[in-house]
Design a protein around this nucleic acid. Sequence first.
DNA 1: GCATGGTGCGAACGCCGTTCGCAAGATGGT
DNA 2: ACCATCTTGCGAACGGCGTTCGCACCATGC
Lengths: 234, 234
Amino acid sequence: MIDKGAEIPARRRRSARTKPALTRQAIVAVALDLVDQAGVDAVTMRSVADALGTGPASIYRHVTGKDELLELVLDRVLAGVRVPTADPRDWRGSLVALAREVRQVLLAHNDIAAVAMSGPPVGDNLARIAEALLAILRTAGFPDEVCAWAVDRLSLYVTADALDTARQRVAGSGGSEAVRRRWAEVAQYYRDLPADRFPHTVALRDALFAAGPVDRFTLGLELLLDGLAAHRSG
Amino acid sequence: MIDKGAEIPARRRRSARTKPALTRQAIVAVALDLVDQAGVDAVTMRSVADALGTGPASIYRHVTGKDELLELVLDRVLAGVRVPTADPRDWRGSLVALAREVRQVLLAHNDIAAVAMSGPPVGDNLARIAEALLAILRTAGFPDEVCAWAVDRLSLYVTADALDTARQRVAGSGGSEAVRRRWAEVAQYYRDLPADRFPHTVALRDALFAAGPVDRFTLGLELLLDGLAAHRSG
DNA sequence: GCATGGTGCGAACGCCGTTCGCAAGATGGT
DNA sequence: ACCATCTTGCGAACGGCGTTCGCACCATGC
């Protein structure tokens, strides 16, 4: 948030040809690579330092700690969100487009959504996205207080879904053998529930586990927007 | 999930009067106490062992690892959820009551919701709650596939809100000095956004930070239920 | 009385985030 | 040109984490 520009290498040290120079940007880039390949938990001061050919202490010259590093990674990810131009005649379509864009960008980087759910809402790009959301809502004619909590609820929903989806994706294919077996056990547990005490769960067990092409995210989003529509000019 | 009953002390060892006997239940109880007082992150194999007057290795005789321990804690918390009797004439009221009950129970135990969002959906009590949710939805006459994803979306929303609320509560009063200053900084950042590039955010900054008596949880829930109502007998 | 198997636990391993203190290069004043 | 000062890199270490190993111990069944 500070020193947003420039970041000149400051010095061409021993082998500018072979080393990435150790700047904030380089550190964040390496951390993002680790997130993409192995998830947020794989980001370690040591793993980042290793990938840069140095030790963990060096990272602290450019970043105050791991929290700030992950916030910077999240901000870089959110920089890839392209906000649509608000169409006043179709606020609903605009909101759906923006929500899907954010979700897609988050999911393109593994479980980075976990960072968004564990810290305060920071970063220039988050502010940019929130502004776009508010622009859509306000030009659509929603009262101010409705806009205020609608942006809050929509953000929460999108972030939570992105995190949930990423975790289930790990359970399906990406994850370790142990994690996959764990989820399989849980599925089996639900399948074996006694029909007398869990009649509805048993009756719906096929529908519940049909992780098929049904886009649960959009369905839930439409629910929220249906309800929101009732608050227009209220 | 296994060995659900009994759990006899197995042996009256050296001082049954002074020591809590070291059973699964005692371990879970101690861990839950730690969650209540200092949050999920404060639950450590060592801290749990210390509270029981022993070493970390002893815990592993009764629990396979930290993951299972936290799952057991979550299950014990969810045991406190009292599911309402489904009233077919008021599915909406029943859903609101159940959702609020779950949220309230989760929030009564600090950020325990973090456990629910980081692992697979396990535990007898979770199955019990899901069954109750499905009972309400099905007796209300929703199509099966709607029930299937509605229970998914509602669970996600309740859990995510409980986690989010717990985190903001820490930012308000419960948390450490450092955490509170961090959130204050963020609030200041949003307040100082330039009005030319962030007109809507600036215009709404009072409404956005009015964490007042407005019950955002119920508002969002009503949104979902409004949308859900449109899917009846569809 | 003795083998057996479950239980408690001290010690250790290999990670983690973070801090310290020093070396070395860059910078600025004179 | 020279030295004082500042910034940057980084080896080493600290304390804490989850987990495992191996041994001592005791209740039990033969």
